[in-house]
């Protein structure tokens, strides 16, 4: 697979620092929920930078050739500020994908589905929820860790998805919670115990977000008796510090 040129069809603000980009990709072959693609930017002197982004939309064959990405701006980042603030409708964007056949959920997969996302790590999980809404029959739970209420992306979408009987969405606030929510703090063993499927439920667990978040949650799951072979991870990269 190689690079191809997509066109920005639409953009949508999700939060102050995150934006969803709708791309029109000629001859999009379809994708599995959880897959990502690589984006490549080229300056006018030929300088290039590329990064990976999860596909936020599910594909059911009827969307034609449109897909969505959601990008959270990383302060002083090279690529994300461009995607969040500079790129505009009608611009070309080079992409390579869909890729990655492991961090995916397929409707025919058996057993419950546990999704655990931190920050922009919710992006591929949203694609899984979307795919599940179309074709899923098994129970799904989403634990979504955010800093504060204003950091939640896909607010209305998550509300709609959570109205289904099979889907349970639980938000975790690490810095500041909305009125009526007493708990402020990171995901811990107690929360996993309360809101995640039990090891004996045979769930497949998908954990995604900044590397330290994924590391912590994966360790908590294994410590709680979950089979590491049923825990799939997608690390997005570090938080802070130069690289």
């Amino acid at each position: 697979m190689s690079w191809q040129v997509a066109t920005v069809a639409d953009v949508r603000r999700e939060t102050e620092t995150a934006r969803t980009i709708v791309l029109d990709v000629p001859d999009w072959p379809g994708h599995l929920a959880g897959q990502h693609l690589d984006v490549r930017l080229t300056a006018d002197d030929g300088y290039r930078a590329s990064r990976s982004y999860s596909i936020a939309s599910a594909w059911d064959g009827s969307d034609g050739s449109t897909i969505e990405l959601t990008v959270e701006q990383v302060p002083d980042g090279e690529v994300s500020p461009y995607l969040v603030d500079v790129l505009k409708v009608g611009d070309p964007l080079e992409i390579r994908g869909p890729v990655g056949g492991w961090f995916v959920w397929k409707p025919e997969q058996e057993g419950p589905v546990q999704l655990i996302g931190g920050g922009s790590g919710v992006v591929p999980l949203r694609a899984m929820l979307r795919a599940h809404a179309v074709a899923g029959t098994t129970p799904v739970r989403l634990l979504y860790s955010v800093r504060r209420p204003e950091s939640v992306i896909y607010v209305s979408d998550l509300k709609e998805l959570a109205s289904s009987d099979d889907v349970d969405v639980r938000l975790v606030y690490t810095r500041e919670a909305p009125a009526g929510e007493p708990r402020v703090g990171r995901i811990d063993a107690e929360l996993i115990e309360q809101y995640a499927f039990k090891p004996e439920d045979g769930a497949t667990t998908y954990v995604c977000g900044p590397t330290p978040f994924v590391e912590t949650v994966a360790d908590l799951l294994v410590a709680a008796g979950h089979d590491p072979a049923r825990v799939r991870t997608e690390r997005f990269g570090p938080t802070g510090g130069p690289r």
């Binding site: 040129v5 080229t42 300056a43 006018d44 290039r48 930078a49 090279e78 461009y82 500079v86 070309p92």
Partner: peptide, 27 residues
């Protein structure tokens, strides 16, 4: 070379006393 991304410069800026293709960092 393919397309150019409108408005993208990258994390650079060069500098006369730097080797070609390098950008200055204080980190």
């Amino acid at each position: 070379m393919g397309i150019v991304s409108p408005g993208f410069t990258g994390r650079r800026g060069g500098g006369t006393d730097l080797p070609p293709g390098q950008y200055l960092t204080h980190e």
